[in-house]
Design a binder for these strands. Structure first.
Length: 454
RNA sequence: GUGGAUGUAGUUCAGUUGGUUAGAGCGCUGGAUUGUGGUUCCAGAGGUCGCCGGUUCGAGCCCGGUCUUCCACCCCA
């Protein structure tokens, strides 16, 4: 009768070996966030559906996990809608909560609710899972962790610059080669304006975002299908074909957008960011990519995306500036900017590169063989002393065969094994074995502690 | 949400036109070695062939459904 247990599609268990690597990623990211003065917060896994709906576009609403109301949730539902099986309309009657889709919208809600307790500009980081009812694929999960850093309550482009520095620092520490792509929604708006299609900005951005993947011709076809007139598509071509350095691209696009106030504003922002960034010694490549759009429609200024250079993978970090996300919750005129590191994709990238530091695999540093009750009693105070000195140590819980205990230590990747049997107890010393070199030495208790500290 | 692949031991994978008892490497357990792991040698355990149903004298293999994973689209971390 026992059935095989399983977990929902797109979710995963993490064993010790995976958790050690995941924690390495989280710890690295967190330490950089702290280094730049960001403060941690957490918010609930579930939010009111009214907080989440409508923030991510039509597609996003579909991908939200909705939670059924408690109790007899159907009793309040409209009979007519039930009969028609109108799921979309019925949702609001049977579900008022949902799992968060990202960390930015819950953060905006948090800021509005706690505005009087916060000191602005507020710099926070948040590392928590989010859920999307997407169809899983490689690098795409239904439950995954985002590591967000945001500054809210400051219009300064210094924040954008700082976020690029953070990206540079994080990926340098993780030893992943990346390229930062940057663009600006104001430039995209300017383009839409100049070609006479300001209301088609979403369609235009979604289409040109795919240029790397499907090529220029297919982008043009898609634009025509979305109802853009021939003339407008023609005027778009020089923009899509821009080449050269960042400043060269900006010079060229400046001429095209000469009549668009918003477009010129976007160019000015980009110039400022590049100018401020220039002397800071950022090693990661930062490239202006006018075809970078990003789907989330709350972005209003700079938008970022980070791609791994050595591994085929979707973007591993993304973000941008949102001028009025808190406005929806009743706090207007507060601008924020932030980015999100996708921990699970970073994990996949490191896994493919096989680039984890060896130490990441070590949990216990010194393992004590258990030869029996008398030996065990002799060892325990010493183990306590080692732990007080900050050395991770453990003893096998029973006097199993030596071979079995050695195999255990070996499979746990424990670098040192201490052996205290009858001989050692009589002379008051410890035999220490280096598991990697295979060498052994005899030490006193104090010498052992000193030796392990190195 | 649309289209297409996939599933066999803990794991990676073989398995002939449908035909006796479903195999291998790695891993695991025990031994060679009662105070020495990672190398070697010997022996052994381990499978509702994803699940449900159908066709057939007979199904791991054929058919239908379902679930998982993966790929493309869509979108995104």
């Amino acid at each position: 009768m026992a059935q095989k247990p399983s977990i929902p599609k797109g979710t995963r268990d993490f064993g010790p070996a995976e958790m050690v690597k995941r924690n390495f990623i989280f710890d690295t990211i967190k330490s950089v966030f702290k280094l730049y003065g960001y403060q941690p917060i957490e918010t609930p896994a579930m939010e009111n559906l009214s907080t989440l709906m409508g923030k991510y576009g039509e597609e996003g609403d579909k991908l939200l996990f909705k939670i059924l109301n408690s109790g007899d949730f159907l009793s309040k539902a409209d009979d007519a809608l039930l009969q028609e099986k109108e799921s979309a309309k019925l949702t609001s009657q049977i579900s008022e909560k949902g799992l968060r889709y990202d960390l930015t919208v819950p953060f905006a809600r948090f800021v509005v609710q706690h505005r009087n307790e916060l000191q602005f500009p507020f710099k926070r980081y948040q590392i928590q899972p989010v859920w999307r009812a997407d169809r899983p694929q490689k690098g795409r999960y239904r439950e995954f962790y985002q590591c967000d850093v945001d500054v809210i309550g400051s219009n300064s482009l210094l924040n954008e610059v700082e976020l690029i520095q953070i990206v540079d620092e994080v990926y340098r520490r993780l030893k992943i080669n990346v390229l930062v792509k940057i663009n600006n929604r104001k430039i995209l708006s300017g383009i839409a304006e100049v070609i006479g299609q300001p209301d088609k900005i979403i369609d235009i951005t979604v289409a040109i975002d795919k240029i790397d993947k499907i090529g220029l011709d297919n982008v043009n076809t898609e634009l025509a299908e979305k109802g853009l007139p021939r003339q407008a598509i023609d005027r778009l071509q020089p923009i899509l074909n821009l080449a050269g350095s960042n400043s060269e691209k900006l010079e060229q696009i400046k001429k095209v957008l000469a009549t668009s106030e918003i477009g010129l504003k976007g160019i000015e922002e980009m110039e400022t960011i590049f100018n401020w960034l220039q002397p800071l010694g950022v090693q990661t490549g930062v490239e202006l990519d006018l075809t970078l759009a990003r789907g989330l429609n709350y972005y209003t200024g700079a938008i970022f995306e980070v791609k791994a250079l050595d591994v085929e993978m979707g973007s591993i970090t993304g973000g941008g500036r949102y001028d009025d996300l808190t406005g929806i919750f009743g706090l207007p005129e507060v601008s924020g900017v932030g980015i999100s590191f996708g921990a699970d994709r970073i994990y996949d990238v490191l896994e493919q590169m096989d680039a984890y530091p060896k130490e990441a695999d070590v949990t216990t540093r010194l393992f004590f063989v258990n030869f029996g009750e008398a030996e065990q009693t002799w060892c325990l105070p010493l183990i306590h002393q080692l732990r007080n000195a900050g050395i991770s140590a453990e003893i096998y819980p029973e006097a199993a065969k030596l071979k079995k205990q050695m195999i255990y230590a070996n499979s746990r990747n424990i670098p040192f094994v201490a052996m205290v049997g009858e001989e050692e107890m009589n002379t008051g010393c410890i035999t220490l074995k280096d598991m990697e070199k295979g060498t052994q030495e005899t030490l006193s208790g104090d010498e052992l502690v000193e030796r392990m500290k190195k």
